[in-house]
Design a protein around this nucleic acid. Sequence first.
DNA 1: TGCAAACTTTCAACTAGTGAAAACAATAAA
DNA 2: TTTATTGTTTTCACTAGTTGAAAGTTTGCA
Lengths: 201, 201
Amino acid sequence: MAGLRERKKQRTRRALIESALQLFDEKGYEETTLAEIAAGADVSTRTFFSYFASKEDVVFYDTAERMELAKAMLARPEPGMSPADLLSSLIDNSLAWSSAQEELTFEDAELRLRLILTEPTLQARALTVLFGTQLGLARTLHETYAGELSMIEAAAAVGALFGSVKLAVIANLEHNRSLEEIWDTARRAADVALAGMRSLG
Amino acid sequence: MAGLRERKKQRTRRALIESALQLFDEKGYEETTLAEIAAGADVSTRTFFSYFASKEDVVFYDTAERMELAKAMLARPEPGMSPADLLSSLIDNSLAWSSAQEELTFEDAELRLRLILTEPTLQARALTVLFGTQLGLARTLHETYAGELSMIEAAAAVGALFGSVKLAVIANLEHNRSLEEIWDTARRAADVALAGMRSLG
DNA sequence: TGCAAACTTTCAACTAGTGAAAACAATAAA
DNA sequence: TTTATTGTTTTCACTAGTTGAAAGTTTGCA
């Protein structure tokens, strides 16, 4: 389908991602230099920056894609579904999706999560990314329920949902050893936020 | 009271803050270099880093103080106050406090807010700071209502509250011209989150 | 085959941030 | 008031992320 040029670019991109994640795992994030990442992917340091805007960005390479999926979900709810139900199913689906990715092995996904939770720089970036996602989802939700849901309400709903899940999961990180436990924490926190929406209508 | 050494340090700190904020205002955040900030405060560039860990940190110089105030509030609720009521009054107080600071003029405060909302780097830092604050407040709340409120519930409550307010305020930035309007947006968003808590008990 | 467009490399520069040792100033003890 | 001690700032040297520009390659297409 796509020409050689396009395929080559995808390969370079992949090579950069793999080189980076492997090095981060082996030596740590801060300890890995861009020069090393580039070398591992057989390109010049300068070239790294035509694929990613920053060192942090490699770690979040699939964010845009995930965002699109989530948006698509919110854009076309099953007929008759309330905003709260829709958001509730979004949480379920997102958690499920994390496990079921082909591109990355389960270990890769877990490694990446640990990396993000461990490295301050990446944590900060994650907060930014998540924030942007929420804004986008709030807008979509507002459009989906045009008339019924003001922008403030949509933003408050999405913000409350993500805010409670995020804080609860992180605050319980020490206690949550397995993915199941994390999943359970997330669900319980989500229900706190969703109860608010339901009680308002 | 404090010795000369201590007073001198406070003066240098102030000088750095003022030099930085003034330059950020005049030339923009990214355009201002640490060398210029230091020069404006009559110290060496290296000295900047014994006062602040990074360029971003100057802008958030009073964060720790604010955090302590908020924590203190959550630690000693009026007898018989529910968690939801307590958090509700926290929001009111925080919004009020922003306006009533002596150290900075009203313009300074507003300039700083605009700076933070405008500059990506500072936005990112704000998210991190706010996140840390939430974690601290959730722990305090959990301790205050020991037995009644699990850590997950406390985190979900605080996360939902801050999450909804934050997202609603930002999402409505364009529409919110005055502080009063922002305040109103915040209150409305907070009520969405608080309704959830109240409906659960 | 040959030209134009897309990509990569090389080179040079700038800035945030860090470590270490030398220089300097403040405090307290003699 | 001199001296020893301790805290603070400066100077110097260096690393690493990031950006711009120009030169060099590769690919797509006529």
